[in-house]
Nucleic acid binder design. Structure first.
Length: 775
DNA sequence: TGCGTGCTTCTTTTT
DNA sequence: GAAGCACGCA
């Protein structure tokens, strides 16, 4: 018996050893899923299977990397690179590049990220004269994405009665045209979006059976992680590939399916037994991660869901503490409470900062939490959010890389044609775009025709275009000879990007410059592999297009509290977890509560969040929270009531701010002296509430837009606006201020509007423009 | 043509 | 509260 098999429990071991035939591993939270996958691959290799015959698919780069590391530790790193292991998108991008000729794409096709896709859709909508209010890029992209994930081509879309009816009903009957043009443009640009990578793989396998056969024979052993998150497109690819050998092992947990919103089909895991009748099922139900109390609480939550595979997840760890529930007065206080708790627990248990995670439903919630941590000098790190690769300066430089590698890439072209400034403005570019559109060619191709086509561009402008193209072409030749870092550095220097950023001495400019340097360093690292041939820029960009948030982790201080969305926390575990913002409309999100299926997905998300915790779990909600720059009242989430009360306890409101009224937010008066604990929190709370700075800046704006001389002295009751003045309101039009009452900041003005009669407005929120001063 | 300003919109989650 | 967009001025 192989020694590593002894480290597994019975079910895990059976799952690892059942290498032939289809197996379904139902892996409850914390049951050692990754372990089974890595051991299974190790086992395959030990049985003498060739690494190049093994295909292992994950959803995130993080998961792939972790698995590689762990297998590397068991069997050595040399073999790893022959394994086909990576995300769905990266693996099939690789295959598509190899087979690109068959589907008429350049092997160096670009990959459009969602921003590129949205920009393209916006452009198309503009060309079609469609109302951008109705045809929102996000929604249109969503529809196209939905279609692609269900293998509906643009022409099928146009001919599908059901889809068209649905589009008509949502008053967007032109989406089919957008889809067609979008497809066309991607094709001429030699670009694929994320969904295309899967969609076109399906097309490739359908249209070229001999190619499918080649990969079927190659991938004798297929493993799929997080099977519950596969969409239809992914499901079909797997089905096709596994059709020959049937050595397919899928691992997943239906209770942790949280990506239906982007097309994941939880049914895939339910239907596995039907799809592969000779299947073996392994149910891993023992949770090694969390205390009994946490596991029980999580079970009591997921029990409320109707659609699920029944499981008996249990823990044999200590019973542990109850879940703590905190009611905070405001979002700021929530952060303050958490920061205090972290310090307390850390001190009590001698923990590291990295033992703590703060989870939230939306990225927007992170800022206030950060603020609280900073005030307490707690180091933290945010996962996700605006990722490094989404920053403007990074995208600019990457756009150069993309265009150099694939000159057809229209979105890259548009991004950098005038960055840094080279005197090509909107008007000139528009003419070029028109030419490209008329001739149905890429922008680059259109630009090469400027000399022969009769176009209303001055010779000087044409020359500028050609200079730009010369610049790009120079680099193109360099790519194959120089290594990635050298080329990248030259691009950053010769294009003037570095110079442009270097001259910007604002803090943002300096930070941008640093980011570029950091990217260059990243490329250097990428080229410093142990392999014989150093990778060129093409390989780098192929790699980087599919990287997202989490990847950049070259931070040497890793002892930090982790902040992230619940979605990105999947697969991770922390000794202590703070789950924040448990409020109706936030979690569950207001977009989901009307639909049972979606609500169940939110509940699974809640389940995922709970099961991240090993020992301590604190759940919190705020009674008021800033949203859209306004304070809103919040109710505690229904999910809190889903937890069996035996496993949760409300913390005594030691720190909560009973003292402050919630209704009269602009009248924050201290009814009694706050205790020491709340004092600091109160001051930050009040500061935020006053929004003095915002108010003053609005006054400044009023000052600027009007010709009146308005005093902005603080303490002046009217804060600038006086009776008798004529003001303009965005909705009610012009009116006269007839009365002012109340103290700053809740000054109320009564205004007689010509159109709308007399209105009382809270000046703080009234959008007023002073037209002229009466006296 | 470029740049600054102010207005509007948007925020659920991500490969 | 940020980012894109339109508008108007230099």
């Amino acid at each position: 018996m192989y020694p590593y098999l002894k480290e597994l429990n019975d079910i895990q071991r059976e799952a690892v050893e059942a290498v032939e035939g289809p197996s379904l591993v139902i892996a409850g939270a914390g049951s050692g899923k990754t372990r089974v996958l890595t051991y299974r691959i190790t086992h395959l290799l030990n049985l003498g299977k060739a690494p190049s015959n093994i295909l292992a698919l994950t959803f995130t780069n993080k998961a792939a990397r972790e698995m590689k590391d762990r297998i590397g530790n068991m069997i050595g790193n040399k073999i790893i690179k022959y394994l086909w292991m990576g995300t769905f998108h990266s693996i099939f991008a690789k295959i598509l590049r190899i087979e690109s000729k068959l589907i008429n794409y350049p092997s160096s096709f670009s990959i459009y990220d969602s921003q590129d896709s949205k920009n393209l859709i916006k452009t198309i909508c503009k060309e079609l004269n469609l109302d951008p209010q109705v045809y929102k890029a996000n929604e249109v992209l969503g529809r196209i994405s939905f279609a692609k994930n269900n293998l509906v081509t643009a022409s099928n879309y146009a001919n599908n009665f059901q889809i068209k009816t649905s589009d008509k009903n949502s008053r967007k009957p032109e989406i089919y045209r957008i889809y067609q043009i979008y497809e066309n443009r991607c094709k001429t640009a030699g670009a694929m979006d994320f969904d295309d990578l899967l969609f076109k793989t399906n097309m490739l396998f359908d249209q070229f059976p001999e190619i499918l056969k080649k990969y079927q024979e190659k991938f004798k052993y297929i493993l799929v992680d997080e099977y519950q998150d596969t969409n239809f497109s992914q499901y079909l690819i797997i089905k096709k590939l596994a059709n020959k050998h049937h050595n397919l092992c899928v691992v997943g947990d239906d209770a942790q399916s949280i990506y239906a919103f982007r097309g994941a089909r939880i049914e895939n895991i339910f239907n596995f037994k039907k799809d592969y009748p000779e299947n073996k099922v392994f149910k891993m139900e023992q949770n090694y991660r969390s205390t009994q109390n946490i596991v029980n609480a999580a079970n009591s939550v997921i029990d409320k869901n109707k659609s699920q595979i029944k499981k008996n997840v249990y823990s044999e760890n200590e019973s542990g503490n109850k879940i703590k529930l905190f009611e905070a007065y405001t979002d700021h206080e929530e952060g303050y409470l958490i920061a205090n708790m972290i310090n307390d627990i850390r001190y009590r248990d001698h923990d590291n900062f990295s033992d703590f995670a703060i989870l939230y439903r939306t990225n927007a919630q992170s800022r206030i939490l950060e603020e609280a941590l900073r005030k307490k000098n707690i180091p933290y790190k945010i996962y996700g959010g605006l990722s490094f690769y989404q920053r403007k300066e990074i995208k600019d430089l990457l756009a150069y890389f993309r265009l150099i590698i694939n000159p057809l890439d229209d979105e890259a072209f548009k991004r950098i044609i005038n960055y840094p400034k080279r005197g090509i403005g909107k008007t000139s570019l528009d003419k070029l775009l028109q030419l490209a559109k008329d001739q149905d060619i890429s922008i680059w191709q259109a630009a090469t025709k400027l000399n022969v086509v009769n176009i209303q561009l001055s010779g000087a402008v044409v020359k500028k275009f050609h200079e730009f193209m010369g610049l790009i072409s120079n680099f193109t030749t360099m790519i194959n000879t120089d290594d990635a870092y050298e080329v990248a550095r030259k691009i950053a220097v010769n294009t003037g990007i570095l110079k442009d950023l270097h001259s910007d001495k604002t803090p943002e400019g300096i930070s941008r410059h640093e980011n570029i340097q950091e990217l260059l360093n990243g490329i250097k690292e990428f080229t410093n592999t142990e392999e014989e041939d150093t990778p060129n820029l093409i390989e780098y960009i192929e790699n980087v297009s599919l990287l997202t948030n989490d990847d950049k982790s070259n931070d040497n201080n890793n002892d930090k509290v982790i902040l992230m969305t619940i979605h990105s926390a999947k697969g991770l575990e922390f000794k202590s977890v703070f789950l924040t913002g448990l409020e109706e409309d936030l979690f569950p999100s207001k977009f989901t509560v009307s639909n049972i299926t979606e609500l169940e997905e939110e509940r699974r998300l809640f389940y995922v969040a709970i099961t991240r915790a090993e020992k301590n779990l604190c759940i919190s909600y705020a009674k008021t929270r800033y949203r859209w720059g306004q304070l809103v009242d919040c109710r505690p989430s229904r999910f809190i009531r889903d937890i069996n009360p035996d496993f949760i306890e409300q913390e005594s409101p030691l720190l909560t701010m009973k003292n402050y009224k919630s209704k009269n937010r602009f009248n924050l008066k201290q009814e009694s002296t706050p205790d020491k604990n709340t004092e600091k929190s109160y001051s930050s709370f009040k500061k935020q509430n006053d929004k003095t700075s915002t108010f003053n800046s609005r006054l400044k704006k009023i000052n600027k837009t009007s010709s009146t001389n308005i005093s902005t002295t603080e303490g002046n009751n009217t804060e600038g606006i006086k009776t008798g003045e004529i003001v303009e309101h965005e909705r009610f039009g012009q009116g006269t201020v007839v009365n002012i009452e109340g103290d700053f900041p809740n000054t109320k003005a009564t205004i007689e509007f010509n159109s709308a009669g007399t209105k009382q407005l809270l000046l703080k929120f009234a959008k007023l423009k002073v037209i002229k001063k009466y006296n």
